[in-house]
Amino acid sequence: MAIDLPTIWAAIIAFAVLAYVVLDGFDLGVGILFPFFPQRHERDLMTNSIAPVWDGNETWLVLGGGGLMAVFPVVYATVLPALYMPIIVMLLALIFRGVAFEFRWRTQRASHYWDYGFWIGSTLAGFMQGIALGALVEGIEIADRQYVGGWWDWLSPFSILTGVAVVIGYALLGACWLNLKTLGDIQQRARRIAMITGVLMLGLIGAVSLWSPFINQVYFERWFSWPTAFFSAFVPLLLAVCAVALWHGLTTDKHLQPFLAALGLFVLSFVGLGISFYPYIVPGSLTIEEAAAPDSSLMFLLVGAAVMIPTILAYTAYAYWVFRGKMDPEEGYH
């Protein structure tokens, strides 16, 4: 594994995508759980708990997209047309979800419609992201730097499975977030949901893991042949540790531990994907090396990224710190 500019950038893009998935994951998850919390005051508390941070979370999605165009333009130019419909639906879903934060306060009569928008938007966005992931794992047809597949290639039993898995995973993150941010009845229910979605999530991770080696011979070799098998053996082991930590935290009234354990599940699943993909960036079609923009582009943006990403992480952490702790039901709406 040579450390050159394309590899560094692949790592940065992977980091941006992971940051997006876990950060927007928990706030989309809060939206996905709306039907289980029908009371107005519950939903106020839920949206207020993510209102100060959701916009920053979603910016990682823009970095993933914008960054991809800058450093792997051919990936951006082939993957997005290949995933045309899931991407468009995701964007529209994110619109409903994003405006609902403000709109639901601006009307009394129509407020519950925006709540529906928040729920459906969050769920659909997560589902489409999962479908996009599944379609990418299955591979997309590229010839002469262009997408040459059909318009429904992304739709398959496997991509639907990954779509469901992502929605369940986000719901788990959202439930663990509520366990962290609330007390009393809401926290109790969130905890029960976290247990159920946690079990489902582990089952789905297992299903996807067992299925994917048979989609592509490369994955099979990656997982079961030396030396990568060394890493791929570690991933399930650590997954088991996270699963135990999650369950233990939920059953012993821990508030932060389940959230961290759920994040761990996501990080490990993502690492598993990374092991499967490398050295490809689009499995089977484009390697990191051949998809990279000229070094001058990579270097120019790397200077900025090296300075800015730590800075961004610092002030993002600060923003989370400012809004830390339990939600006060009296404070949010008055």
Binding site: N48, A51, W105, G325, K326, M327, D328, P329, G332, H334
Partner: peptide, 9 residues
């Protein structure tokens, strides 16, 4: 009214 001062500690 709005999602104001999202609460915490």
């Amino acid at each position: 009214k709005g999602p104001h001062r999202a609460a915490g500690i």
